[in-house]
């Protein structure tokens, strides 16, 4: 009887430990900001722009064009293409481009550095999106000005999750 009691307590204790560990891990994943990394989309943008003014495009016009499907089949590989209206000459060119997201575990997606030799300021890649959210593409010009474009996408979740 006594042995049973002890055994039960041990089981309970272990169960609590496991529960605690699980809860701890959940928090870890959710709030885990990589050390020194921006916590929100807004702070990511203002840090990239080093606090200077960022000019955002409207839904139909702007210096930065952000191509992405509005409805996404699978968030594991979402094709994106970002282009900037720039002559890409030694006098007027895009120095850097970056993409940030709102709801992935980490705000940064990609940061690129360009040179006038590009001829055209356009970068394409494929990205992961954990869920439906906002994304911002931002460009730094050689005169120190910043331009950005924000898009909002819906990510459909697969019904049959892989084994």
């Amino acid at each position: 009887m006594k042995t049973n009691q002890i055994l039960l307590n041990t089981i309970n204790f272990r169960r609590r430990q496991i529960l605690a560990a699980t809860v701890g891990m959940t928090c870890y994943v959710v709030i885990r900001p990589v050390f020194g990394a921006p916590a929100t989309l807004d702070t990511a943008i203002s840090e990239f722009a080093r606090g200077t003014k960022v000019t955002f495009g409207t839904a139909t016009a702007g210096k930065v064009k952000f191509d992405i499907a509005e409805l996404i089949d699978n968030g594991n590989a979402v094709p994106i293409s970002v282009s900037v209206d720039s002559p890409m000459t030694d006098a007027d060119y895009v120095v850097a481009m970056a993409v940030f997201n709102e709801k992935n575990p980490q705000r940064e997606v990609i940061k690129c550095r360009l040179s006038p030799s590009a001829g055209r300021a356009q970068v394409s890649t494929r990205i992961r999106l954990a869920t439906s959210q906002k994304l911002t593409a931002i460009a730094e010009m050689n005169d120190g000005s910043f331009y950005a474009q924000t898009v909002e996408v819906v990510v459909t979740l697969a019904a049959c999750i892989e084994e």
Partner: peptide, 26 residues
């Protein structure tokens, strides 16, 4: 020799990374 393009990638870049960029062929 010049770096014509560079990118810093984060975990949000898909498996088997694909990157396309431009270059003026002079």
């Amino acid at each position: 020799s010049d770096v014509i393009f560079s990118a810093e990638l984060f975990p949000a870049i898909s498996a088997n990374p694909y990157i396309a960029f431009n270059f003026r062929a002079t």
